[in-house]
Write a protein that binds this DNA or RNA. Structure first.
Lengths: 196, 196
DNA sequence: CTCACATATTTCCAGTGTAAATATTTTGCT
DNA sequence: AGCAAAATATTTACACTGGAAATATGTGAG
């Protein structure tokens, strides 16, 4: 089914890859149907057969984004000794991804570009969320007690790290003369412990 | 200088207001130079004299957005008795604004639409940040000790509330069958105290 | 009254996404 | 094998976008 003997062969994947490249080079404004198609060498209406619309193609790009995002989060996870180290590694990975691929990060979380209810994208996003969920287990923080503790812990960590990534990307945390934030996510994240 | 006796009279303000209306009705994709101009009753190139480009007009819209944003944050502030109540009020206001005006909120924080280095916008944004800054003073949280404590406390609270608002807006926190989040910002915000 | 200037319009252009009709290739069936 | 059907890609056309340039109109100072 995923053959390689059509006109182009593997247009579907080629379009996603071309889109990712353009995103790195020119950002979201450069990510046009015509630019993507031209890069692959097909007409600008060719993507319609595979993705329906630009939004569909962007959703596929976002899906690949979530896969890489989850890879970033898991990166330092294996060599982390303690649970606290694992937490730090996952959170750092989250931010590192946003800093390394700001435009892709923007695309992934914006309903303007991505269909967040898409099943394939949802699966990739849940895989990313799974890391955050595992990290959240048993975390102690003032206010944690109460209904839906696990879910609220996930929401707390996710909000914190996502907000940091978003604001850092928007340049709201710039410190010195270089464009980088004055403080890392780790120095802004409360040091909670794991109990029970 | 801000007279009312030209062709239109007060085009500059009229354009911003029309833009805000369109934003509420049709969201960011509907916010085109031509749509705004048509609503006011002028040609689509008229805004150029006042704002230079669509980006300039959007920056002005974002500036007005920050003014309203800061008003939301200050809303419940006067009737708050304790410092903890003031913190809750400000954070709730932040999120209420994002929920009430999601498209404007998106525009305000995205470099794609707003020139965040604009001086007027910067002033309005700083006024909003001032509330957060005041709320942050003396807040105790594990990890607060160290260099730049005040700034890091602001970053911590801002990241948390901004991330919550962003993710809630993207529908990542939906709980039941209605589209609303399952938990409020207050039930997700660690209960720190004020010491020293 | 006239000149200078600010303001707004008209016209034009290079882009954009998408729909419809057409062309081409691959696949399935007999 | 051959032929029909389906998948894939192109061509063409259209309504829309923001912006540049030239033109028109109104305002205010001398």
């Amino acid at each position: 089914m995923e053959g390689k003997k059509y006109h182009h062969g593997d247009l579907k994947n080629a379009l996603v890859e071309a889109g990712l490249e353009i995103l790195e080079e020119s950002g979201l404004p450069g990510l046009s149907l015509r630019a993507i198609a031209t890069r692959v060498g097909v007409s600008h209406t060719a993507p319609k057969n595979h993705f329906g619309s630009l939004r569909g193609l962007m959703t596929a790009i976002g899906t690949e984004g979530f896969r890489r995002h989850s890879a970033f989060m898991r990166e330092g996870l294996t060599e982390a000794a303690t649970r606290a180290d694992r937490l730090d590694a996952a959170m750092s990975g989250y931010v590192r991804f946003a800093e390394a691929h700001p435009h892709l990060f923007e695309l992934m979380f914006s309903p303007l570009y991505c269909d967040l209810r898409d099943e394939t994208l949802g699966a990739a996003a849940r895989d990313s969320y799974a890391v955050l969920s595992e990290i959240s287990e048993g975390l102690d923080w003032p206010g944690a007690e109460g209904p839906d503790r696990q879910r609220r812990t996930e929401m707390m960590l996710w909000s914190l790290v996502h907000g940091y990534a978003q604001l850092a990307k928007a340049g709201q945390f710039v410190g010195g003369d270089d464009g980088r934030p004055a403080h890392s996510i780790l120095s802004v994240m409360p040091r909670f412990g794991y109990g029970g």
